[in-house]
Nucleic acid binder design. Sequence first.
RNA 1: UCCGGCGUAGCUCAAUGGUAGAGCGCUUGGCUGUUAACCAGGAUGUUACAGGUUCGAGCCCUGUCGCCGGAGCCA
Length: 497
Amino acid sequence: MFIQIKDFATHDGQKVSIRGWVYGRRSGGGVVFLQVRDGSGLCQCVVETATVDAFQKASELPRESSLTVSGVVRRDDRAPGGFELAVSAVEPIHLAEEYPITRKAHGIDFLMSHRHLWLRSRRPVAIMRIRHTVIKACRDFFDNRGFTLVDTPILVAGAGEDAQTLFPVEYFDGKAFLAQTGQLYLETACMALGKVYCFGPTFRAEKSKTRRHLTEFWMIEPEVAFAELDDVVMLAEDMICHVVDAVLCRHEDDLKFLGRDVEALRKVKKPFVRMTYAEVAENLRSEKTRKWLEDEILRDKIRLQGWIDELDELVKQVDAAKKATQKDKLQVQIHELKENIEDLEADLRNRPAHIASAQSFQFGSDLGGSDETIISRQFDKPVFVTDYPKQAKAFYMKESAVDSRLVRNMDLLAPEGYGEIIGGSQREENQDALVARMKEKGLNPEDYGWYLDVRKYGSVPHGGFGLGIERALSWICGLRHVRETIPFPRTMGRMYP
RNA sequence: UCCGGCGUAGCUCAAUGGUAGAGCGCUUGGCUGUUAACCAGGAUGUUACAGGUUCGAGCCCUGUCGCCGGAGCCA
């Protein structure tokens, strides 16, 4: 009977078979320890000389060879996971060629070039599992609240938003673009079904090379009829809480394996922080924030010096280390530490400019990445920022009734400096106002006939938002770059594999 | 597009302008409980590419390419 490794605990003492791949091998004279992974988990298979055939085969299996293993599950404290397989038979399915990815240190370039193989390693597996849960939790959340999934087109006509950020594709004799949002279509669909959402890939041709950008990413976008900005904010808040709860509930081990500070995630509870753009502007310019940021620089400089001292110490230890593995482990530590040091040094170099930019923040401009970071680092919960200046935002956002310079929009900034993970708004439901806004932005209303029709036939207040799955995951998993949150990332400089 | 960093063995990295090295991985042998095992031996290089300076260049200079990070823009 084939079982999955994750189910070992319920088969203690039973004879079972597993199918999987060789993750690692160690031998101790008359015993071979095969580490086998099957996608559900990792187990230690113990092969002794007495089982002559199995011992012979197990001794010769290169890493990542596929195989079936049969034996008896038994509890053993020496086994990782608490259970191991006492092997009676090993049947290789395919003997692997020399596997390029070792269990040692690799650089990001090498790993990204071998992403198709890297996916087999524990770290990507943990992240992919969490990604699955995040997506499922989002969909469950909407399904349980009476939303209907509506798939929006990926190929769209040219005249949309700023064409410079879209990927053009040939479309028979004409030109089309890859969609960068389903929102406009969702607005029409929510007038049919009340509450709708879409989930799919989306494309941005922006030439951004940062840890927060991909050219192809996935977004979940709800759109609700009879909703105003507060309704949209509460919806987003409930959704994020639901998603974080689901991940904490199912993936505490994965999170810990990734080195995520789980306690920080537990603080993500209602209500989140709410600030208006004006409050953010005041915060950024305030003496208090400047002081806080300068103190932070001092703290980080001390932290940096600590790391540099630690690095010196490690270098000395490498020279003194006798055992080869010890040396290797130290080198890996040195590598990680160097990366952290370089990161922090770069950050510290940029910090004065960020402070200056925050201090001189002018009403009317959009929040920059550094401004978002400054705000989100001040809180341990996500922060909603609402009511941005009209000029910095898209044409379809509802003008504020209190201040005509503002729109009723919201961004959600993830804590710990991760920045924007959600952008949304109440939409302009008045046709005349919408047409006027289009003209202000230099758009031709005639290109948006179908969109304007939503405002002609029973127009109602409505709104929604878009959650960037990869950015949310990057925050939830505590990663330094979004490229690890998607199986095959597409960035400006990489299309392979 | 702009600014900065990097490019040395399959991988991660060393190497005052003066004989290209270490660890891992691979491979051969040893060991009956290993935890990124350990011990002993072995093979492994167009120092990204093209020029230049120099008695001599992995190192200095110029250009090209590739990657990484940041800015702008955004999820």
